[in-house]
Amino acid sequence: MKRLKYIKGMALFIVFICLLYIGICYTTWVVRDKSLGNIWVKLREQKKDSIDVIFLGTSHQFCSIDVDLLYEEYGINGFMLATSGQTMPMTYYAAKEAIRMQHPSVIVFEALYCHHDFRTLTDGMTHSFFDGMPYGAVKKEAVEDLIEDESQRIYYYLDLGYFHNRWKDLKEPDFHCTMNSSRGNYHFEETNPGSVVPVLETDEKREIPEGTLYYLDLLIKLCQENNIRLVMYVAPFGVLNEGDDPAGVYEMQKSFHWIRDYVEPMGIPFYNLFEHVEELHLDYGADFMDAQHFNFRGQEKFTRFMVENGYFDF
């Protein structure tokens, strides 16, 4: 009798803990800032090993490629795993986790952030990368590698500690699903004038930082070991504000030239779309969400261009 009571007590306690876990997970999901996407949640919803192509990189990746269109019109079964401010080390860890979860046959890497050696950018961007990432060895490795402040690491596992104060800003969309489609696709309707893309006419090169090259090598090795085809490209963009000196964009293009020369001998295609900007027939008044990023019209135009010109011949 006493034993039965004990077992009943333990069972009730376990049920309570399970319900509490669900409650905390739901609360975390509600307060999490979804304005920067919530792609891991979407990726987890995919059937295991059902995705063929994973798209990695920065906001330029998810603003340029429409994965829903790729699937519906071209039959490319892709998933958008790019996040705002996804640095090269983050991309490496995203690829590692994506391979564990889905084992795609192709990884498309938008290589804009290869030109600098930041490991993380803002806290919000870092959270948008880590939040929802499945708990496991890859997440642990990534957190320990990328988050220097040890006292803050815990909040990348328990992000309620970071976002709980958002209770003040909760609105209806926070209680619904995220801004991404089931394939992680973003759809930006806002239209603002884009800034004209400055194209570097010479083939000057600038070596990328050593730290970034280290992670690029890791990514290449990871893909080789897992028999995954790696495709790299950069989407064109202009200066951030009208009147800004385009020298910064030229410097980046020099880095892209260097990367092209570095990866192509390894059999990795690198497409520098700055060189094809005229063929894209961009409408700077209609195709942009802000000065540098495409809206849904630019995204569709760019996606079609990539497929129809054979860059995405998967």
């Binding site: 905390i24 307060v31 909040y155 309620l160 500690g161 970071y162 709980h164 104060n165 209770w167």
Partner: peptide, 8 residues
């Protein structure tokens, strides 16, 4: 957890 003052 929601209304407490703590965390990052």
């Amino acid at each position: 957890l929601l209304f407490g003052v703590y965390g990052a």
